[in-house]
Design a protein around this nucleic acid. Sequence first.
DNA 1: TTTGCGTTTGACAATAGTGTCAAATCGTAG
DNA 2: CTACGATTTGACACTATTGTCAAACGCAAA
Lengths: 219, 219
Amino acid sequence: MSAAEIHDNMEARILKAAKSLFIEKGFEETSMSDIAANVGINRPGLHYYFRTKDKMFHAVFEDIILSIVPKVFTILMQQERPIAQRIEEVVNAYYSLFLQNPNLPMFIIREMNRDVSQLVETATRLHLPDRLKEVTDSLQEEMAHGKLRRVPLPFLFYNLYGLLVMPFLTQNFVTSIYLDNEKTFVEMLNAWKPYIVLQMTTLLTCDMPRDDSFSTPFL
Amino acid sequence: MSAAEIHDNMEARILKAAKSLFIEKGFEETSMSDIAANVGINRPGLHYYFRTKDKMFHAVFEDIILSIVPKVFTILMQQERPIAQRIEEVVNAYYSLFLQNPNLPMFIIREMNRDVSQLVETATRLHLPDRLKEVTDSLQEEMAHGKLRRVPLPFLFYNLYGLLVMPFLTQNFVTSIYLDNEKTFVEMLNAWKPYIVLQMTTLLTCDMPRDDSFSTPFL
DNA sequence: TTTGCGTTTGACAATAGTGTCAAATCGTAG
DNA sequence: CTACGATTTGACACTATTGTCAAACGCAAA
């Protein structure tokens, strides 16, 4: 193994530990000492590989975004597939990611609120706004052709992510009140999935009340 | 004004400032100095009225819970009113609270994850589990009588709060991408409301797919 | 073996935070 | 006015955090 490879290896080990801790406790509540201890090196060692805590966080954040967003975009653009199928696959993708990292929804929302500009910045650096535009254009095209009902895009967003993310955001709370164990939680998630798909499908294909004060589909 | 009244008054001033700051930035990111500066007194003064930051937070938290939960419970128990009406009123209650404190949803979820036991403890001290049981019993009675479709209670919870809370959780993000200003956000909320009500009503009155692996309505 | 480079580490500086305490201050009842 | 209790304050102790640095270390090539 070359020196560069050893270096990259340590960098990867650090990123892995940092990712795990950042997701679990968030940026503010995770200390460099925590991460160093987790990797098994000294705290200044972290600064050697990533100059500051911020830079390390950016790397982790980018990694997380890249692990899911492009996948979802790709699924949503497959116009030849029925929308219900696409939605189910999106839900599956998120489920599998969130079941590996149950605190990820909490993490994203927390960091999104701690520093929006950073999220926007990262997304821009990864050219996600461009890709997002393709997705929304594609969906609006389907709406225009009457294949999908016209729904303001933020409403699609709220519907999908609200239903998808709420079980994870409240997992601790709900399991401490309703459920016994993690197995029950996963069973519950599986039973919940068809509700998400159906509600999204309903929203996108059936008639709903219109409010004239907000009839322009913005964006 | 008596000495006791002056004391209570200062206590209230502190609580008000603390509440505002805690909601905005969360427990960890709010310092006693912040609060003291906001009230216009000295940091040790806070410790004089509330011995520790924790005790102060408990007081704030209790205040917040009491400002909304009983209201919602009461609305939901009014069996004589159609469910759609009750749901709309619940949404209205939350809307009016959240529009006054747009960061409240973030706050509750963050603190709920930071320390579940505290939330449970506070709720218990306020006898909310008993009242919650009355509400769920009431709803299950309506389900048993066929007035409402049998839906696992957590699903009602996810549906309502997911749809209700997501716009607020992502307000910064969404407005920084889609919307121009706060006015647009409020308009959007009003247009969004009927969707919440309709989706909840659909869930509670129309047929939905059943998954046998999870057909027992738990709790 | 020695030189040199990349890496690791202990020690330090700077900042920020909580909680405590005794002294100073204030207001008021006697 | 005085004395007492309630309140406010400055100062302190303690802990935790990030970032820096020069010195030590280890290893591989010359």
